[in-house]
Design a protein around this nucleic acid. Structure first.
Lengths: 142, 142
DNA sequence: TCGCGAATGATAATTGTTCTCATTTGAGAA
DNA sequence: TTCTCAAATGAGAACAATTATCATTCGCGA
């Protein structure tokens, strides 16, 4: 789905590090990755990329609309492929597992709240922090 | 409203720095303050408190339930007196101004989303980022 | 008033992220 | 294909927010 063309379309020169990062997001089983995650995954799969480059590329991809950036409570921000469909997140406080959801009613009420308070809404973040029920949960990370 | 008793009730020894911080939150016109804000406000009003102590006290107050902590996109976290009534926030991306709102319907739908995904909700954060209409907006801070 | 454990101050250490700058690379020109 | 050069990268320094360390000081009960 995402190919070098995507980089060109985004006005980004097609370089090795960029292709590797993009490919990682497309193939990783974990959809939400932090800069550190990306760096470690690349290194552990034998790729040589600098952490600085990972940060730069992630930021560029986010600005180009290829990735979405989120700020969970953990302190570090995480990225995910931009599916084009807005959604919010439920984050497990124990294992860091993230699940996505969308609720039209919530979206509507948010817009309403912004309007009522005389704000021009630009973006919003809804994070639900909870305990998930994964059998392998509680390994504590992220 | 909040007095030394509150500290004792919270199991915290009533010390000067703690009283000063608590008093600052009670009297400041800005309801949402970062650690840096608190530190600077105290210093500029002639008080002598260490930044490390400010961080410690804020954390203790938050754990004691006196303060609520929020993580806006700015990167630094902000605190506010715990009113006891849950509410969400609209944050101006330009001037950092924060407004509060509450929408029962949103709360209900969030709970529903968590249940549907088999999560035991522990906490949630809903931040709407927008441009406010304050005449003195756009000074850019926080 | 004394004594001791808890709290504080000053500063070093950590963490996540950005910046600097010398070196390398990709993509078009020759 | 080779050359050219701006753009991209790597390595490490620099930064900002926050936490940890540890010697000194303080609050509070005996």
């Amino acid at each position: 789905m995402h190919k070098p063309e995507n980089l060109k379309n985004a006005g980004l020169k097609s370089t090795l590090p960029r292709l590797k990062v993009l490919q990682l997001f497309e193939t990783s089983k974990e959809r939400h990755l932090s800069a550190e995650d990306v760096y470690k995954l690349l290194v552990s799969s034998g790729e040589v990329v600098s952490l600085a480059t990972v940060y730069r590329v992630l930021t560029q991809f986010q600005q180009a609309g290829l990735l979405m950036q989120h700020h969970f409570e953990s302190g570090k921000s995480v990225f995910e492929l931009n599916s084009g469909e807005h959604h919010d997140h439920i984050v497990c406080l124990q294992c860091g597992h993230v699940e996505e959801f969308f609720d039209a009613a919530i979206e509507v009420r948010q817009e309403k709240a912004a309007v009522e308070h005389d704000f021009a809404i630009r973006d919003h973040a809804l994070y639900i922090y909870a305990d998930c029920t994964k059998k392998n949960c509680s390994r504590g990370s992220r």
